[in-house]
């Protein structure tokens, strides 16, 4: 009898511990991986992955900072180079490393383990420019000229990470005052500001019924256009407009959270994101380049280009000045645009 109940207790304990092995992963809302990869990870490591989406990256980070006394996750994916210094300064990240793979030269992210990277830049509508018989702008300054009036749509950096990235690129290239002088000029040249990427791309971009043939997007967007085309097309209807001072390198990473549970499983998850399966799988799911050097690149990425140059402010500057820059930008560009 006693034996039996001890056995039962032990069994109950076992099943409880099996239930308790849950790894809480906080991600931004664009996180997406092939389902079978996630199932594979859960099976191999005997944990249940509980993925929680916390809005876009900036919103997600602030949610983590606010709840640092009672961490709501064990590991976070999606903090990028615009946010990493803020995250580190807030003390929410535990030291994280991965022995898996060598990181690409561009994809460095001190304070976290890099998973993927990409470039925020201008895209243009090929058909529109062909029809208008207008040469492509050769510099950002061209966009302030009358010939290019009412052609550009950007996202508000206060509500969009692509908008923020583009603003940061202009500041890194021209210095703060120079950049804001340029913004003032393009504002007066009919700049359109939209809330987020989706609004800009699907209501303002001329390719989708809007009136603006130039939009702030990703350098991989032309490849995604081919991938998600209705009938399989061989050439993208959009292309990159890689102008000096208009390209921002974005690196996204994964890190353990201070006070998180299941450190072993969390480390396994970090390594999992660096594994070959995920590094190849993420490309056509999240439209970013794999951070691990030597990973095979999906053939559809031939429709995208990797910019040779980009302009990023220092990580420290992005931490200390971004809020002021965004506020100044809104006061200059949005309020005065009547």
């Amino acid at each position: 009898m006693l034996k039996k109940s001890v056995l039962l207790l032990a069994l109950a304990g076992l099943s409880l511990s099996a239930l308790a092995a849950e790894l809480r992963v906080m991600t931004h809302s664009s996180f997406s991986l092939p389902k079978d990869r996630i199932a594979e990870f859960e099976k191999q490591n005997g944990v249940k992955l509980s993925i929680v989406k916390g809005g876009d990256a900036g919103e997600m980070l602030n949610k983590l900072i606010l709840t640092r006394a009672n961490p709501i996750a064990d590991v976070v994916y999606g903090i990028d180079n615009t946010l990493i210094a803020k995250a580190s300064a807030a003390g929410i990240l535990a030291p994280t490393s991965s022995k898996l793979g060598r990181t690409e030269k561009d994809a460095q992210l001190p304070g976290a383990v890099a998973v993927d990277y990409g470039y925020v830049t201008l895209n243009y509508d090929k058909t529109w420019f062909a029809k208008a018989e207008l040469p492509l702008p050769a510099t950002l300054d061209d966009l302030a000229k009358p010939a290019y009036k009412d052609l550009l749509v950007v996202q508000n950096p206060a509500t969009s990470s692509t908008g923020l990235a583009f603003l940061l690129a202009t500041i890194a290239d021209r210095g703060e005052d120079g950049a804001f002088k340029w913004w003032e000029k393009v504002r007066d040249n009919g700049l359109k500001v939209s809330k987020g990427w989706s609004e800009a791309y699907y209501t303002d971009f001329s390719r989708n019924g809007g009136s603006r043939p130039i939009v702030v997007s990703y350098a991989t967007s032309p490849a995604a256009e081919v991938f998600y085309s209705k009938e399989k097309i061989s050439e993208s209807p959009t292309a990159n407009l890689l102008l000096k001072g208009g390209v921002f390198l974005q690196v996204e990473g994964v890190a353990l959270l201070t006070g998180g549970k299941e450190p072993q499983a969390a480390q396994a998850f970090v390594d999992f994101l660096r594994s070959e399966g995920v590094q190849t799988g993420l490309q056509t799911k999240m439209w970013m380049y794999p951070a691990v050097a030597g990973t095979a690149i999906d053939p559809v990425f031939a429709h995208a280009q990797k910019p040779a140059k980009f302009s990023n402010p220092s990580l420290a500057a992005m931490n200390s000045k971004t809020a002021a820059w965004v506020s100044r930008w809104n006061r200059l560009v949005v309020k005065q645009a009547n």
């Binding site: 809302s29 664009s30 990427w197 989706s198 791309y201 699907y202 989708n208 997007s217 967007s221 995604a224 256009e225 991938f227 998600y228 085309s229 209705k230 959009t238 439209w287």
Partner: peptide, 11 residues
Amino acid sequence: HLGRPGAANLQ
């Protein structure tokens, strides 16, 4: 779907 480019996503 509206968070990604491409005609199929829009449709």
